[in-house]
Nucleic acid binder design. Structure first.
Lengths: 239, 239, 239, 239
DNA sequence: CATGAATGAGCCTTCATTCAT
DNA sequence: TATGAATGAAGGCTCATTCAT
C-alpha cells in the first residue's frame, strides 16, 4: 500500500517536472504572457484541468521554475565551493560556476529575470515564497562561507565595517548585472565590448585584488586554475 | 495666430508628458502588463482615442518612456563628468550620478529594466529604436571619456588587451546589477546586507583600486569628495 | 463510454450549427459588419469565448456559412438533375431548383453575395478555401453534365468555339444577377417589373431557344413541366 | 456678387468631385470599411471637418459615388441609343456600352456592388435616395425606349403578357450578373470559362434571338456592327 | 468656413480559471 | 482524477463624428 502511494507520488513528481520542462522555454523566450496554459497543455498532450491539479495558478508554475533554477545553481555552487585549492581559488571556482550556469541553462537565468519584475508574488502561496527565500539564503551562504574561510585563513582582511555579505553582494551584483546585460543587449559589440564574459572575470578579480584577497591576480595563474576547475569539478558539464 | 499655434503645440506636448508621467509608475511597478491603455485613459480622465492620437501603440509609449529615462541620466552624467577634480574623482562623480538617478527616479530605473526583456522592438519604428541606441552610446561615451582622460593623464594603465569600454562595462554591470537587486529584493537585510548603496560604492572603488587607478582609495578622502560633488554638481537634487 | 463521447461531439456539432444559424441572417441582412461576435454571443446566450472555441475567427464563420450554402444548393441541384425527362426539362428542373433555393433560403443567397466582395480570404485556412472551390466546381459540374447530355442526345448543338461551360455561365449570370437585383432592389415594381421570377424563367428559356436547345419553348408545356418538377422532385419543399 | 457666388459654388463642386475621386478606389478596392474618413482627409491634404461640410456622413459619400456612377453609365447609354442602325443594332450598341462601362470604370462597377449589400440606406437623406431611383429609371428608360422602337417598327413582338421592361430586366440581370461574377471570381478560367465577356455578348444575342428580335444573329454581322459602334459612338473611349 | 484634437462606442481576440461529466 | 468546453473579464486598437478655436 505504502509502496503504491510512493509510486503515485513519483508519478506526480514526474509530471510536475514535465510541466516545468515545457513551461521554461516558453517563459524565458516569450516572457510572462508567452507562458500560456493552453499551450502547455497542448505540448504535454494533457488537459488544462490536469495542470491545475498540480499548480493552483500560472504564477505558481513560474515560482516553481524559479525554485528549480535556484536549486540547479546551488548544486553547482556547492560543488565549486568544494574545489581543492586556496580560498581565492575556491572563490574563483564559484565565479566559474556562475558563468557556467548562465551558459548551460540560459533559460533558467531568463526565468529569474522575469520573476523579479513581474508582479507575481501576490498570487502565490506563502510556502513557495519561503522556499525561494531559503534558496537565496543557501546560495549566498555558500559564497559567504568561502569568504569566511579566507578571512579565517588570513588570506583576506575586510575593511572596518565591511561584512563578508557585503563583499558577496558586490560580486553578485556585478555578475548578475553583467549576465543580464549580455542576455538582453544584442549590440554590446557595437558598444565596444566584444568578450563580455572574459571582461567580467577580469573585473571581479580586480575587485578582489582591491580588497587584497591573497593571492592577488598577479600571483595567480588564472588560466591554469580555470583549467583545473573545469577538469576537477565540472568535468561532466564541460565535456 | 502664430502664438496660438505654438500654444496648441505646447498643449499637445504637455499632454504627451502627462501620458508618460502616468504610464511610468504603471510600467515600473506592474511590468509590461500593468501598463494598460484603459487605465492610462482612466487616470488621465481622457478617452483612449486621445492617447492613440499621441502614441500609435502601447509599445511606442514604452519606448518614449525609455528615451526620457536615458536623457535624464545622460543629463546627470554630463554634469558629473564636468566635476572639477582628478580623473578618479570625476569617475566617482559619475558613480554618484548613477546612484542619485536610481534614488531620485526609481520608476525611471524600473522602466529601463523592463524594456530589455519584453518583445517590444518589433512593433516600434526604426527611428525610435535608433534614438534609443544613440542614447546608449552617448551615455557610455561619457564614462569612457573619463577613462580615456585618466589614461592620457597617466592615472590609469589598463592591462594588455583590456579596453576602456571593458572597464566601463564592469562598473556598469555592477551598479545596474546592484540597483536591480535592491529594487526587487525586499529582504536584503535578512541576507545580511544592510546598506547596499554604500557597499556598491565601496566595491566599485576597490575594483578601480584593483586596476590601479590613481589616486587609490587609501589616498582619497571619499566622503569629502562626495560632499564636494553633492555641493558643486548636484546642489539642486540633493537639497 | 463511446456513446457518451459521440454525445458530446453531437452537442458540439449542434452548437456549431446554431452559431451558423444565428450568424447567417446577421451577415445576410447587415453585411460583413453586421456580423459581430458580441451579438452572436448575446443572441446565443453564450460567451464569446465559447464561439471562439468553435471558430478561430470571424472569417472562418463566414466561410463556414458559405460552405453550408453551397452544399444546400448542390443538394437541390443534384436532385433536380435526376428529374426524369428530356434534357431541356432536366435543365428546367435545375433552373427551378435555383429559384427554389433563393426563395427557401434567401439568407443563404445573401451570404454568397457578400463573400465575393469582402476581403475574407486572407484570414482563412487554405483548407476551407479549397472546400469552397470544390463546391463551386461540383455545382457547375452538375449543370454542365446536363448540357453534355443534351449534346450527346442531339438535342443541342453549340456554336463553333462555344463550350458547355459558356452556356452555363450565361444562365448562371442571368439567374444570379436577377436574384441579386430582386433581393436588393425594393422598387422593381416601380420600374415596371412586377413578376421578376417569372420573367427570369421566360428569359432563360428564350436564351435556350436562341441556342436551339430542343424541344423549343413553343413545343413545351412549361407550366406542366414545372408542376411535375414540383411534385416529383421537390414535393417536400413545395408543400 | 452673383458671379462670385457661382465661383464659390464651382469651387465647392470641384472639391466634392475630388473627395469622390479619392474615395472611389478606396471603396471599390477595400470595401465598406476600407473607406475611411481619416484616409480621405489625408489623401486630400484637407481636414476631416471640411469633408463633413460637404457630406453629412460616410454613407452620403457612398451614395454620391453611386450617383456619379449611374450618371456615367447613363451618358454612355444615351450615346449608344442614338447609334444609327436598326433596333437590334441599337440594342447591341447599349450592350456594348454596358461592357465598355465595366471595362473603363471598374471602380464604378465595384461601388455599385457594395451599395447593394451594405445597410447604407437608413443613414442617407431621402433626397439622395430619390436621385438614385431617378437614375435607375432613366437608365432603364433608355433601354426600354429601344425595345419600344423595335416593337413599333415591327422588328420585335413580345409574347403575351410580357412587357418591354421584362425583356430589359432579363438582359440587365444577365449582364450585371456576369460582370459581377467576372469581377469577384478569380478562378473563372479554372471553371472552364476563358473569355467571359465574349460569352456574355453571345448569350444575350441568343436570348434576343429567342424572342425573335429581327434581324436574328445569323442575319447580322456582329463583328462589323461592333466595329461601327466603336468608331461612330465611342471613338474617344476606344482609342 | 477650415481645422484636427478629442471622443467613446464598438470590435476582434486572448486566456486564466472553473466545473460538469 | 482527468478532461476540455464554457466562461467572461480584459486588452489593444479603430474610426465616424463632434466641436472649440
Amino acid at each position: 500500500m505504502k509502496c503504491s502511494l510512493t509510486q503515485k507520488q513519483l508519478e506526480i513528481h514526474e509530471r510536475e517536472k514535465r510541466i516545468l520542462a515545457v513551461s521554461r522555454p516558453m517563459l524565458a523566450e516569450q516572457g510572462y504572457h508567452g507562458l500560456n496554459m493552453d499551450r502547455i497543455a497542448e505540448k504535454l498532450q494533457q488537459s488544462k484541468g490536469t495542470i491545475y491539479n498540480h499548480f493552483a495558478c500560472k504564477e505558481e508554475i513560474i515560482i516553481a521554475l524559479a525554485i528549480e533554477t535556484m536549486e540547479k545553481r546551488i548544486d553547482l555552487f556547492q560543488r565549486a565551493a568544494m574545489f581543492r585549492g586556496n580560498s581565492r581559488e575556491r572563490f574563483q571556482a564559484i565565479g566559474f560556476a556562475a558563468e557556467l550556469f548562465v551558459k548551460l541553462y540560459p533559460h533558467h537565468f531568463g526565468v529569474e529575470q522575469i520573476i523579479r519584475s513581474a508582479s507575481i508574488w501576490d498570487k502565490t502561496s506563502e510556502k513557495r515564497r519561503s522556499v525561494v527565500k531559503l534558496c537565496e539564503h543557501r546560495c549566498i551562504g555558500i559564497v559567504v562561507g568561502v569568504v569566511l574561510d579566507a578571512i579565517s585563513q588570513g588570506d583576506l582582511e575586510l575593511p572596518c565595517g565591511y561584512k563578508p555579505e557585503d563583499l558577496v553582494f558586490g560580486v553578485w551584483a556585478q555578475t548578475s548585472g553583467a549576465y543580464s546585460i549580455i542576455a538582453t543587449n544584442d549590440s554590446l559589440h557595437e558598444l565596444g565590448i566584444s568578450e563580455p564574459f572574459s571582461v567580467v572575470r577580469q573585473s571581479v578579480n580586480r575587485q578582489l585584488d582591491g580588497f587584497g584577497w591573497k593571492p592577488l591576480s598577479k600571483d595567480l595563474d588564472l588560466d591554469a586554475v580555470i583549467k583545473r576547475i573545469e577538469k576537477e569539478v565540472f568535468a561532466d558539464e564541460c565535456r
